[in-house]
Design a protein around this nucleic acid. Structure first.
Lengths: 328, 328
DNA sequence: TTGAAAGCGCTAACAT
DNA sequence: ATGTTAGCGCTTTCAA
């Protein structure tokens, strides 16, 4: 049960601990012969460097934390996947902390992580504002915001601009003759929700079509869609904008089940991720987020930020695109 | 940028580092006055104990690794949620490692984790057999298998027995007069897949109905269902067993989209998790896995195992239940 | 090319 | 109740 340490290896191979360390990290030139001997000892003894001791000594953990609102959401699990890929190529691991869109769990997660166990933090925050976490977010740990912005936060951010795509989508609906276009939001305290809603209002206003009675406040996670959709249909909407992937999929299931034919009985403008091959979504107009790209860029950015902690703040913005449906 | 250490606090409060340590961990009795003074110093200096140094010294990391095949699968994200809950109550954190059902990523994950950064490992393995990971699975770290068993593995395991529920479900189908009952499997190298398939074959055999031509090999993740379902229908099946939650949901979407009415045109026996409120699933007969319970039990078990590393191996088996559909 | 030895920041046994 | 101090297992400087 006693773990074998670098001492044991050194003794077994008849060298100093320094030499073993050099070999583990191939830091200095070591004669081929010694290297061979030490490597044999390592294998024989089954030696594994104690990662905690290494981190303690060097200060490097090769670990990034991703604080994420909902791992079951395809958007975020795609993000995780992509970030992991980028990090793995640089020998970093990703630690995932799931907040379930609650502030308390976000705070707990930030606290857990600010004890110095990670080299960097990627945060998709569920907070209303930066002030709510300003005091607990450790300035000593490189941090970047992903997907959702926090006003006045000095950290780097990587976001997706959906404003233009939403405008285009709504324009398209209007162009097809729709006048009563309903809208189901995500969680209202999140920056992306506000951005998208503003784009919708703006466009509707430009055509003199804006009607607050056609807006429903949703959450991005669970089962709020049914009621909203029914009530918008009852209100006479011929088209509905549903502003995230989870809700769009749910709406799809529900409509199919009730015999409402999206694309015929009602027009839906939904959201999906870059590579989401969700069955049924082909009946909707879609706004497609560059989710994979978002993850990749975030992965690269946190790594760069770690190697240059003092660099200037960066705000990176990717663009979503509007794609009309294929099928009826 | 220089992190403040326990030394700084001690100096600032005019006490020894030991006293500060006692207060942080409230280990020994400290006079109310000293405590107050030290706590003020901690606040003033913004001191946060270096978690790595603590772990280094004590050997405790308060971290459990969960190596999981697919975080986007509701079954596993529910598991994560429940395990997190149990661990949080004992001040443990969960580190999630997503293998995407690939062996290579499982091996990488095990290696990453066996450098001693966690106190315990929960593994939902995607391997064919224990021999594939026997040499890399660290015996010094408490490990439990969840959901999927690995023959001959000496670790504890927590699984869900679906055998009886599948038998009952298939019996029920037969009782309703179905004779050609198709079957779509999960990944064939996984223990749960085999268990379920055996139960199906067994039951069909008992009624002289077993026909290998009615079995389709699926994977549990992606988009294999459509083809299989179509071909089973073409083969004359009046009922189909779909043996995990992801595939069941996908089949649902597809059938609705194609105007096939589950529960009327075709009978489906699907799977879902304890609390999965997926729209549309009410048209299927269902086998319900006690997913939340599974997570809770696993969380408790790993904690117990950590406090008693030498205890006898435990194999815990929960039972799935069969539930006929509500709606037509 | 190799080795001796000084810590990294903290905990806890032991002493006072 | 509080302080002194010896490490935990490793890396790395400096010397040989």
């Amino acid at each position: 049960m006693n773990r074998v340490g670098i001492q044991d290896v050194a003794r077994h191979a008849g060298v100093s601990t320094a030499t073993v360390s050099y070999i583990i990290n191939n830091k200095k030139s070591v004669s081929a012969e010694t290297r061979k001997r030490v490597e044999r000892s390592i294998k024989e003894l089954g030696y594994k460097p104690n990662a905690i001791a290494q981190s303690f000594k060097t200060g490097k953990k090769n670990l990034i934390a991703f604080i994420v609102p909902d791992i079951a959401n395809n958007f975020f699990s795609t993000l995780i996947e992509e970030i992991e890929g980028v990090l793995a190529s640089r020998h970093y691991k990703l630690m995932i902390l799931n907040t379930k869109e609650t502030k308390i769990r976000e705070i707990e997660s930030i606290n857990a992580v600010s004890s110095g166990i990670v080299d960097g933090i990627i945060l998709a925050s569920t907070m209303d504002s930066y002030s709510e976490i300003k005091s607990i977010l450790p300035q000593s740990i490189p941090t970047i915001l992903i997907d959702r912005e926090l006003k006045d936060c000095p950290a780097d951010s990587i976001t997706v601009n959906c404003h233009d795509a939403v405008c285009r989508g709504v324009e398209d609906l209007i162009g097809k003759g729709h006048r009563k276009i309903g809208y189901i939001t995500g969680l209202m305290h999140i920056s992306t929700t506000v951005e998208r809603l503003d784009a919708y209002k703006e466009t509707m206003q430009q055509h003199g079509l804006c009607d607050p009675a056609l807006i429903r406040i949703g959450d991005s996670m669970s089962h709020c869609v049914k009621g909203h959709l029914d009530s918008l249909i009852a209100a006479g909407c011929t088209a509905v904008v549903i502003t995230n992937n989870v809700m769009a999929t749910e709406a799809m299931l529900q409509m199919l089940d009730e015999g409402i034919r999206p694309g015929r009985d009602i027009e839906i403008l939904g959201f999906r991720d870059s590579d989401q091959a969700q069955y049924g979504l082909q009946h909707m107009d879609l706004i497609i987020q560059p989710t994979k790209e978002l993850g990749k860029v975030a992965g690269r950015r946190i790594l760069d930020r770690i190697s240059d902690p003092a660099g200037l703040q960066q705000r990176i913005e990717l663009q979503a695109i509007f794609m009309p449906r294929e099928k009826t």
